[in-house]
Write a protein that binds this DNA or RNA. Structure first.
Length: 313
RNA sequence: GCGCAGGUGGCAGAGCGGUCAAUUGCAUUAGACUGUAAAUCUAACGCCCAUGUGGCUACGGGGGUUCGAAUCCCUCCCUGCGCA
């Protein structure tokens, strides 16, 4: 009976207001009107954000607050310890579990977040080899040149070497890691989520986006973003680890260690966040069914159309 | 007013007689994406034809030296620092 399942996906850049939109849709889907019209028993939000899975990372990751949730359940927030690496594979397992449960309760899951890779892992079911990070191997490979890495991969797995980006050390190392463990890198396959999908992309104009990012930065500073980072460090998150927990935490750690000034902190952070937003757009552009929207009204109309056109009403 | 340093592409900043439309970083634009993905990587980026071992205009303004100048000389303008 999976064919009658449906899911709403809200992707988009950071600072685009997509979390609020998700809540609005969920509230509407939970209303008596929606129930009468479409027989829907509400909605739950499943976060697709690779930073917000971590406990204690709230202000810096822009995690929605209890109040902003307005009673709508949010899943996949605070499910990981920032001291330990969380992975897309783990995300996939946890998120699918939630989505299936939500369906069983005759509700609609709203997958909302900015991590395109995570969203893909759910709706396209990208396969991911079961190979854990091998710290020792990575340490060993860290100082090799990209040419050396490429040669090493070519020897182990010529098939994968053919299509890999040979300039990208992170990918090369990962591929070698997988080849080392499994003998070769498995070919990519996809197992699409068996459901009707409404894929919305929230996008703001460049100028508007920059303004929002700046304003949000100021708000976060007032909300104690730097204090939060200091607290994380006190509770055992190393500075080195902090570097890989996202832009706010990376630059925040540098600020706290006095490697950069408060001014440099602000400038580089805003610059990096903007650049990241562009990469997010590039990612979502690949999605053939995506419907780009910029304001709230459009979201509601698109959702309504999506529900009206259900083949199984 | 005198002394010193300097004025180079959107910004920062190399180059200091030919190989310079000009290293590099930032910004900008587009793109890739097989388990840390807020990661990692790629390309374009003076103007024009928009095909190239193509054409044109460029290194504060003007003048000069030279076969040849962003690079040397003169002069003017401007900026910073020091002294008055």
């Amino acid at each position: 009976m999976e064919q009658d399942k449906e899911i709403i996906v809200i992707g988009g850049t950071n600072a685009s207001g997509k979390s609020d939109l998700a809540v609005k849709i969920a509230l509407w889907l939970g209303s008596g009107k929606a129930r009468k019209r479409f027989g829907i028993h509400g909605a739950e939000i499943v976060s697709a954000d690779s930073r917000q899975v971590y406990k204690g990372m709230d202000v810096g990751s822009g995690k929605i607050t209890k109040k902003e949730m307005r009673g709508i359940p949010h899943r996949l927030l605070d499910v990981a310890d920032p001291k330990r690496i969380f992975s897309a594979a783990r995300y996939r397992v946890l998120a699918l579990r939630e989505i299936r449960r939500i369906w069983r309760e005759h509700k609609i899951p709203i997958l909302c977040g900015g991590t395109g890779f995570y969203i893909d892992a759910i709706i396209h079911g990208t396969n991911i080899p079961e190979v854990k990070p091998n710290a020792k191997l990575r340490e060993k490979l860290k100082h090799k040149s990209t040419e050396e890495l490429f040669k090493a991969l070519e020897e182990k797995d010529p098939e994968r070497a053919r299509t890999i980006d040979r300039n990208n050390p992170a990918r090369l190392i990962r591929a070698i890691e997988i080849a080392e463990a499994l003998g070769r890198v498995p070919a990519p396959t996809r197992a699409p989520l068996p459901a009707r999908i409404l894929f919305l992309g929230v996008k703001k104009e460049n100028e508007e986006l920059k303004k929002r990012i700046t304003l949000r930065f100021e708000r976060r500073m007032r909300q104690g973003m730097v204090k939060e980072i200091a607290r994380l460090h006190r509770t055992g998150v190393s500075w080195k680890r902090m570097e890989s927990l996202g832009l706010e935490y990376r630059y925040g750690a540098r600020l706290l260690r006095k490697e950069i000034t408060r001014n440099e902190f602000e400038k580089s952070l805003i610059r990096e966040i903007t650049a990241y937003a562009k990469r997010q757009i590039t990612w979502f552009k690949r999605e053939p069914g995506i419907i780009w929207i910029s304001d709230e009204k459009e979201v509601m109309t698109k959702t309504e159309t999506f529900l009206k056109n259900r083949p199984f009403n």
